[in-house]
């Protein structure tokens, strides 16, 4: 009899716990779905052709986000162009030449810290080394700030992907008398190609929504600007400015921009994931 009682009590406790787990999952996922839903509702309302064809408007009138979109594309592109080679080479060092060394372990540790360091700190850093000496905000400073964020992401994925390349392949190359540089560039890189591209796409996804590092490097610009030496607008900073404004038109544009960014980031992550998973499936 007493055994049954304990058993009943345990079953009860289990039921309560399971209900709690379920409700945690439902609760958490509901919030996240709610955010996406709101974004879709408000964002689609603000989307129109003029968003892509007109520049950001002065307060109280209609306009678009053309200059911000172009600015974002330029700075993201440059950020990736600056950051990827450094990240790729450093990741190569960690996975190939430096494997097992103390230096590699240190670099890996520091890189992991940089990977999750607050992005606003990166903004301050680039302000100190570029904006302050140059005396003005500029698009190029924004691109450098984004590059600083790209580097650790690419280092991490490059190392992970190169480690997945079987050692037998490298030995095959070495046995043929290939120097290491060719083993890496012709064998390891090719075998890990899909993974390396995935890493780059993830880096693009990461920086395309960044706001904090651009606030005081690229600043913002009301007008269309492709001159890297001048302040440059970006979607995320425009969203920040417009969302906090009291003007209804600006707020609508902010939602439209938010939808664009989210859509772009999600699309990039999905493509990256598909590429990555195909690699694993092989």
């Amino acid at each position: 009899m007493r055994g049954m009682k304990i058993y009943e009590a345990r079953r009860h406790r289990n039921k309560i716990a399971v209900v709690l787990y379920y409700s945690a999952a439902v609760f958490g996922i509901t919030w996240l779905v709610l955010i996406l839903f709101t974004l879709l509702r408000e964002g689609v309302g603000g989307l129109s052709l003029s968003v892509f064809t007109q520049n950001t408007p002065p307060p109280g009138s209609a306009g678009g986000l053309l200059n911000a979109i172009v600015g974002s594309l330029i700075m993201t592109g440059l950020g990736v162009a600056f950051g990827t080679p450094i990240g790729l080479l450093a990741g190569t060092y960690l996975a190939e030449y430096g494997r097992g060394t103390y230096l590699a372990a240190t670099v890996r540790f520091i890189n992991d810290i940089l990977l999750s360091a607050p992005s606003i700190i990166v903004g301050l850093f680039v302000y100190e080394i570029m904006v302050a000496p140059m005396g003005h905000f500029s698009g190029i400073a924004g691109a450098v700030a984004l590059a600083v964020i790209v580097v650790p992401v690419v280092v991490r994925t490059t190392e992970d992907m190169l480690r997945l390349v079987p050692g037998g392949l490298r030995e095959a190359g070495t046995a043929l008398g290939m120097p290491r540089v060719l083993v890496i560039s012709r064998v390891a890189y090719r075998a890990a190609k899909a993974g390396l591209i995935t890493g780059m796409l993830l880096a693009v996804a990461r920086i395309s929504g960044e706001t904090a590092p651009l606030l005081f490097t690229a600043l913002n610009n009301q007008f269309f600007n492709a001159n890297l030496n001048e302040p440059m607008p970006s979607l995320s900073v425009v969203i920040y400015q417009f969302a906090l404004s009291p003007y209804r038109d600006w707020q609508k544009l902010a939602w439209a921009g938010a939808l664009l960014i989210t859509f772009a980031v999600l699309a990039l992550s999905i493509v990256a994931r598909l590429l990555g998973s195909r690699k694993v499936a092989q």
Binding site: L34, I261, S269
Partner: peptide, 17 residues
């Protein structure tokens, strides 16, 4: 995927909704 959504989106949602 949700972990990759830019934080500004959470901000704007927090403010308006």
């Amino acid at each position: 995927l949700l972990a990759g959504i830019p934080s500004i989106i959470y901000g704007i949602w927090g403010l308006f909704v």
